[in-house]
């Protein structure tokens, strides 16, 4: 009994905190999403008006598509890049560990600095185009053309986050017993086949972890499009979190902004359900 109380006592502060700063606000957001509220006069109940008008609003639909596209693309590419980097720095090459630490530095740089730096690098006459020029690439307007702006933001995201997940993979790879590979070598398995039949199954839990966490990270993205492209050109990189801020704080439509929050919540909920399922499986294994 005494131990039970101690357990509750340890967990309670965090739960209270979340009740106050997470569940409470989300409940409030749900209520606000059914109201019209400009913060200057009291909220007025309007039923599903906000959602109905969102569904008919091309700007919202475009932001929703941008968000989903961004989540899918950046999650896949972050995972792929992290895995490739991990494989590269896990080779028995001298200095591989130092390379890993150096690559991890992209995670130490503040996001705001990342955004400002990449805005210059992706300038029509910036470093990226300068480096591509010898390969015959012409001028690419990375951030200002509606076909390349979103891919460019994804690229910056990958650059920033992949090295973090690389470290997760490195640890997983290091945990694979050497005997497995030796046995595979005797069987004549090499390269890709060895990767598919030994490495991949053994790092599967981490792979799932990375996919889910990267997706959660991407869903809340705000700063990169806000700073790097301002949501442009023509709304091509506007994501839901930006739309929430703009709708609420620029146009003072808090009810509508709350409705967008609920949609974003639904997306993240779907991602988290996947995550839950994964954690449970891990517990049982």
């Amino acid at each position: 009994m005494r131990l039970r109380l101690w357990g509750v006592a340890f967990v309670l502060p965090a739960l209270l905190f979340f009740a106050f700063f997470k569940y409470g606000p989300m409940g409030w957001a749900f209520w606000l999403s059914f109201t019209s509220y400009d913060m200057l006069s009291p909220p007025r109940f309007v039923g599903i008006d906000n959602f109905a008008s969102l569904a008919a609003d091309p700007v919202f639909v475009q932001s929703l598509q941008n968000t989903l596209g961004y989540i899918v693309a950046s999650t896949l590419l972050i995972t792929l890049a992290a895995l490739l980097l991990a494989l590269a720095v896990s080779t028995p090459v001298p200095g591989a560990r130092a390379c890993m630490s150096a690559i991890f530095l992209t995670n130490v740089m503040p996001i705001i600095a990342v955004c400002l730096v990449w805005r210059f690098l992706l300038h029509p006459h910036g470093l990226v185009n300068q480096l591509l020029a010898p390969f015959g690439a012409g001028r690419i307007d990375w951030l200002t053309s509606d076909t390349t702006a979103m891919p460019a933001i994804v690229m910056v995201t990958v650059w920033r986050f992949a090295p973090y997940f690389m470290v997760v993979f490195v640890a997983a790879l290091a945990a694979i017993p050497a005997e497995y590979y030796e046995a595979a070598a005797i069987d004549g398995a090499r390269g890709l086949r060895r990767f598919r039949s030994i490495t991949l199954p053994l790092i599967l839990p981490q792979l799932f972890f990375v996919v889910v966490v990267a997706a959660l990270l991407s869903a809340r993205l705000f700063l990169m499009p806000y700073i790097v492209t301002g949501g442009g050109p023509g709304g091509a990189t506007r994501v839901l979190s930006m739309l929430i801020y703009e709708t609420g704080f620029s146009y003072l439509k808090m009810g509508r902004a709350a409705a967008i929050s609920v949609v974003l919540f639904a997306i993240v909920l779907a991602l988290t359900l996947a995550q839950m399922k994964l954690f449970m499986r891990d517990e049982e294994a």
Binding site: M26, W28, S261
Partner: peptide, 9 residues
Amino acid sequence: LPLEVTLVP
């Protein structure tokens, strides 16, 4: 429920 979602409340 990242802050981006619950920003307004």
